[in-house]
């Protein structure tokens, strides 16, 4: 099998072979990743299928249930996959809407750090669908609405706000909302803020900014100047004295006095 390679040709050939081997090694490593991703995908499909088909059986064995959940956690599969069924459809009872509720809250919580707990019903719908496995029953926006209404017994923290034909879903109640504090901080320098200022410096959606400002107005923390050039300005009277009174020294003050 050996060729007696000698001279420059043999060296060149050897070098070529070496680089080829190296390339092959890289290809192998990449292959392996691709294959493992594929195995992960298979795992996911199987788990999703089992979650939707064998729910009752899985629940029966305590040990296996823990193991099943463990796998779901590792791969990122949703173990909740009840079908809607007749009774859910007609009466709204059964696990279907409760499960959906859990999935809805989960999506809201996962995105809270980005949207401050405000999400459009469309985006929520999309994300919930993505999180439910291939084998889970399809859900409509109407299903989402029903599921959110079921959460009412958990207090008023989770609500739907009608906005121009669609809904915003609010998952963070004002009691736990830190947005106001952030906006107040932003206003500190000038004494007022506008919607576009909030949008650009905090990269919030318009809806989120408006929501916070309206709350501040309602609470009497902000005043609205609609005649300002450009767009309405939200003034915060609490900041007036700090910003505008210190510029006057005692000497100036006595000069101003008649």
């Amino acid at each position: 099998m050996h060729r007696r390679g000698v001279g420059a040709g043999a060296i060149a050939k050897k070098k070529l072979a070496e680089t080829k081997y190296k390339e092959r090694g890289n290809v192998l490593a990449e292959d392996q990743i691709a294959q493992m991703s594929k195995q992960l995908e298979t795992f996911k499909t199987h788990l999703e299928e089992f979650a939707s088909k064998h729910k009752q059986e899985i629940r029966k064995s305590a040990q296996f249930r823990v193991q099943f959940q463990d796998m779901c956690a590792t791969i990122g599969v949703d173990p909740l996959a009840s079908g809607k069924g007749f009774w859910s459809e007609m009466l709204g009872v059964g696990d279907f809407y409760y499960e959906l509720g859990v999935q809805i809250i989960e999506v809201c919580l996962a995105l809270k750090h980005r949207n401050g707990g405000l999400i459009t019903l469309e985006e929520l719908h999309q994300r919930v669908l993505k999180g439910r496995g291939k084998f889970a029953q399809d859900v409509s926006q109407d299903d989402l609405t029903r599921a959110i209404k079921k959460l009412k017994s958990l207090g008023n923290g989770f609500s739907m706000i009608p906005v121009g034909g669609t809904y915003l879903v609010q998952s963070v109640p004002a009691e736990l909302n830190m947005d106001h504090t952030v906006v107040l901080q932003l206003a500190e320098k000038k004494g007022f803020v506008t919607v576009s200022e909030i949008r650009s410096s905090l990269t919030w959606e318009t809806e989120r900014a408006k929501h916070v400002l309206e709350h501040l107005l309602k609470e009497g923390l902000a005043w609205l100047d609609t005649q300002a050039a450009g767009e309405p300005q939200y003034w915060l009277p609490a900041l007036f004295s700090e910003l505008y009174s210190r510029d006057v020294s005692p000497e100036e003050a006595s000069q101003l006095m008649p």
Partner: peptide, 17 residues
């Protein structure tokens, strides 16, 4: 918030909704 508790607890319970 109780809604967050609800989600957290149910996820920890897995299939026992």
């Amino acid at each position: 918030a109780l809604t967050e508790v609800y989600c957290l607890v149910n996820r920890a319970r897995g299939m026992e909704l």
